[in-house]
């Protein structure tokens, strides 16, 4: 059976930025954090103000959790 594997990257947020933006949604364009918001709508709105030419499909919204636990059991 033929196997076709496609690797999809997810931008990694540096740990120092994770600390800075803990509890917030960040907007990522071209692999970099470009805007921060209290929620996805705010983060997306700010990113689109900076990059009005970009489609929303190019703006990744990523929630940065607070480091308030050692183990996650979701």
């Amino acid at each position: 059976m033929e196997r076709e594997e496609i690797f999809f990257d997810i931008p990694q947020i540096p740990l120092e930025e994770q600390e800075k933006y803990a509890g917030m949604d960040v907007a990522i364009v071209d692999g970099k954090v470009v805007a921060v918001g209290r929620n996805s709508i705010e983060a997306l709105r700010k990113a689109r103000e900076i990059f009005p030419e970009r489609d929303v499909e190019e703006i990744i919204i990523h929630y940065i959790p607070k480091p308030d636990a050692d183990f996650l059991v979701l």
Binding site: E2, E5, I6, F7, F8, Q18, A69
Partner: peptide, 20 residues
């Protein structure tokens, strides 16, 4: 067969450890 592969992401825990 198609396979879509995604990386784990690192996160810091309360005690400063890094979990992927």
């Amino acid at each position: 067969m198609k396979v879509f592969t995604f990386p784990y992401l690192p996160q810091r825990t309360r005690s400063g450890l890094i979990y992927f």
